[in-house]
């Protein structure tokens, strides 16, 4: 299946990419690893006149720690995130999430910047990034700005990026202390998108939950935090019994879509079940050290 004709522009620097974006903005699509864009172009769901390919732009592929923040270049692949020892230690939630995306081949090509900018409502990263209160850095010729991921993603395939802005970096916290994280993904076939995905991040202090963050994907137009669950748990005894009670609140206020893979009711129920599993696993890691 060939996509319709398009013109490709291959900038060799970030500056050049931003110039091209300014010039072609509305009619252009940015191509990174291509694992969201190319399938959609082949199905002719997206028909850009111009494609700006970032593969020759240096300096967009890195994972580095900067104080309490870990900065990840937009062109970093899921596979590089999955195998990063820095992330395994200091942000295992992002690392585990990356390891559950697609399959080996997809993780070899797909990029974190591309995935977030594509804003598929069932994508994996947004659950973790919402729970982690992560931000993205958007750059244009006029300057740069940092936006929270849950404000950046505004709806299905719809983001806060202006046509002349490029997502260049993702920032997640470097975690320390008594914390635990887990990402639970429900899918029917490997390589599928999540039917529901739940990311949990907990901190434990003196036998009680001192911090709880729960991010959900696949349950609506955009990723959401299960704030009711978080509020219910903070200050409570760090135990499975507490989680058992609180997890049922995860579906409160949700209106998930119904489609061929799952009904809305099923997704709501699964949001509760996966929240319980994710929190339980995160807690056991927090207790384990």
């Amino acid at each position: 299946m060939y996509p319709p004709e398009f013109k490709v522009l291959v900038p060799s620097s970030l500056e050049e990419a931003l110039k091209l974006l300014k010039e072609h903005g509305d009619n252009a699509k940015i191509l990174a690893g291509g694992h969201s864009l190319i399938p959609m172009m082949r199905l002719r769901l997206v028909k850009p006149e111009v494609v700006i390919y970032l593969g020759k732009v240096p300096g967009l592929r890195y994972i580095r720690e900067n104080g309490s923040t870990i900065k990840i270049g937009a062109m970093t692949t899921h596979g590089e995130i999955e195998s990063s020892s820095l992330l395994a230690e200091k942000n295992p939630l992002l690392q585990e999430t990356a390891s559950k995306i697609g399959d080996l081949q997809v993780r070899n090509m797909g990029t974190i910047g591309g995935s977030i900018a594509h804003a598929d409502p069932a994508a994996d990263y947004p659950a973790a990034l919402t729970a982690l209160e992560a931000t993205v850095v958007l750059k244009s010729l006029d300057g740069e700005r940092e936006v929270k991921v849950d404000e950046f993603i505004q709806g299905p395939y719809f983001t806060d990026a202006r046509p002349d802005e490029l997502l260049v970096e993702v920032r997640v916290p470097s975690l320390s202390g008594r914390f635990g994280t887990a990402y639970e993904k429900l899918y029917f076939r490997a390589t599928d998108f999540a039917i529901v995905g739940v990311a949990a991040y907990v901190e434990v202090d003196g036998g009680a939950f001192s911090r709880v963050r729960v991010g959900l994907t696949g349950v609506g137009d955009k990723p959401v935090r299960a704030r009711q669950v978080e509020e219910e748990l903070v200050g409570r005894e760090a135990s499975e019994a507490s989680i058992e009670k609180a997890a049922d609140l995860a579906s409160e206020g949700l209106e998930p879509p119904s489609d061929v893979r799952a009904s809305s009711e099923y997704r709501k129920k699964m949001a509760e079940v996966l929240t319980k599993r994710a929190l339980t696993r995160a807690l056991s890691k927090a207790k384990g050290g």
Partner: peptide, 18 residues
């Protein structure tokens, strides 16, 4: 699937220019 720069990739999901 082919190997590109040491890694397995799905060659139906890449443009040749990549």
């Amino acid at each position: 699937t082919v190997i590109m720069n040491g890694k397995a990739v799905k060659s139906c999901t890449l443009f040749a220019f990549m």
